[in-house]
Structures are given as C-alpha cells and as structure tokens.
Simulated assay, not measured.
Amino acid sequence: MDGAVLHAIFDVAAWLSAAAAGWWLARFGGVSFPRQSTEWPYIAALVFGAGLGAYLFGTLNLWLSGMAGLARSVEGALAGGIIAVELYKWRHGITLRTGARFALPLAVGVAVGRIGCFAAGLDDFTYGTPTALPWGHDFGDGIQRHPVQLYESLAMASFAAAYIVAVIRRNAAVITSGFYLALLVYGLQRFVWEFLKPYGPVVGPFTLFHLLSLAIAAYALAMLATAPQSKVTHERAAA
C-alpha cells in the first residue's frame, strides 16, 4: 500500500484513538473536567491555533532544512494550540486550567499517529539519521536509519500507560496536571530525538524543533510549578 495512504489511515486512527481515550476518561475513568474546555469558542480557538501552528512550524522547518513546499508538524500544532488557548483564556478572563482532559488523548494520538509517519517512509521527512544499530530501518533508499517515529510512539505510549494507572489509582496530582505532564514528557523526548533527524540547524547544533521542544517543556514546567493542590473525592476527579 502507498505510504501516503497508510499515513492518512493512521492519521484517522490517531484521531479516533484520541477520541476513544477521552471517552474512556469520562466513562470509565470517572474523571470530570472544566466546562470551558467543551465550549465552541474554546474549541474553535484550539483548532485554529493548532492548524496554523502545524503548517507554520512544519513549513518553516522544511525551508530551514533546504527544502521547498508545505509541511505539517505535530509539535507545531501543539505549540499553536497552546498559544491560541492561552490567548483565548486571557481575553475572556478564564483562570481555571482547562487542559486536563487532553492529557491521555494527546499521548495516545501521538503514539498512534507516529506509526503512520513511519509507514510513510522518506516522503514524510520524519525519518532518522543513518545508524549501524540492529534495529535500523531502510525507508527505501538503501540506508539503515533510526526509526525515530517509533521511538516517539513508544515514549508517548509509555506515558499513556502510566497515566491510565494513575487514573485508576485516583492520583489527583497526576489527573489535575496530566496535560502538563504529557507536554513535559513530549517536549523532553522530542528534544532528544531531534538529534537523530536530518533537519537544518538554527542555533549551533539545534534545529527549530529543538527550540520548540524546549519551549514546550519550559511551559509545562512553569505550569506544574504553579499547579494548585487538588483532591479526588467520591471517586470523581476534578481537573
């Protein structure tokens, strides 16, 4: 099957998996979330910011790597969505943290979606640099490369598993700050994998996505450091 078709299939699977993860949290995890995160203006701001960020950062990274065209980026979508939502909350005077419901969907969506990137091969421009390690993968050009897409998929799947255990155990701190924990894990693991990608550097050895990964991790740390204490009562978690 064509790589682009496989990628599209896994894109759909990623969205469906993320939706299923959110449904599980509410239905079986017994977790309740702030009402603002389901309002249409909030969702519109999130979708707009994520879409703009995906193409803006994806395309910019492509150009910085000496290639023409348009590209999308999961990390760019995350950054754009965060900025848009924070601006929306600031504009409407919302001080309540509204990201908790997206922790598990984010981790599951990335874990599934990156498999599609792996299946897309060289055309996706998410492959790794050459390696002599036994798990190196030939994406079609005869060169064994780091399957960095699978590294990222495994990292986020591991977070998702740990998060599910925390929900089952009613860990209030993890449930309340889950989104920022997911962002922290995503930013740090992505920063590491960027050293194994053939992207053009921006500052020293660091690429655009190195810098974006650090920014996301720093944002997550700041939010975690200022997180209010919370408790889970009556088998319900408010996040």
Rank of each mutant, 00 (worst) to 15 (best):
100 A>N: 09
148 V>E: 00
54 A>D: 01
59 T>I: 13
75 E>C: 00
131 T>V: 02
56 L>D: 04
50 A>S: 14
152 E>Q: 15
107 A>L: 14
143 I>H: 03
140 G>K: 06
162 A>F: 06
55 Y>R: 13
117 C>Q: 02
114 R>A: 03
134 P>N: 08
113 G>C: 08
77 A>K: 12
67 M>S: 14
56 L>Q: 00
88 Y>K: 13
118 F>L: 06
50 A>G: 09
141 D>R: 09
48 F>P: 00
100 A>T: 05
69 G>A: 06
162 A>D: 00
120 A>C: 11
112 V>Y: 11
141 D>F: 12
78 L>C: 11
133 L>I: 07
145 R>S: 06
167 V>Y: 13
131 T>C: 03
164 I>T: 12
120 A>M: 01
65 S>P: 09
49 G>D: 10
48 F>T: 14
62 L>H: 07
77 A>L: 07
62 L>C: 08
130 P>G: 12
79 A>T: 10
157 A>Y: 07
79 A>Q: 01
133 L>D: 04
149 Q>K: 00
157 A>T: 09
103 A>T: 05
133 L>A: 09
144 Q>I: 02
51 G>E: 13
52 L>I: 13
49 G>L: 01
73 S>V: 05
160 A>V: 09
54 A>I: 02
100 A>H: 03
81 G>V: 07
55 Y>I: 12
110 V>N: 03
106 L>G: 06
165 V>S: 02
124 D>H: 11
158 S>N: 11
88 Y>W: 15
107 A>W: 05
104 L>C: 07
161 A>L: 13
120 A>F: 04
141 D>W: 12
74 V>A: 06
139 F>C: 05
115 I>L: 14
63 W>R: 02
102 F>G: 04
152 E>S: 11
47 V>F: 09
147 P>W: 05
71 A>M: 09
130 P>L: 07
167 V>Q: 14
126 T>G: 11
95 T>N: 01
66 G>E: 10
162 A>R: 04
153 S>R: 07
109 G>L: 07
73 S>E: 04
132 A>G: 12
90 W>P: 00
84 A>G: 01
99 G>Y: 10
155 A>L: 07
150 L>C: 14
113 G>V: 09
48 F>I: 15
138 D>M: 15
82 I>P: 02
130 P>V: 12
124 D>W: 01
162 A>N: 00
78 L>Y: 12
163 Y>V: 10
161 A>W: 14
134 P>C: 02
123 D>C: 06
153 S>P: 01
66 G>C: 05
136 G>M: 06
68 A>Q: 03
109 G>F: 06
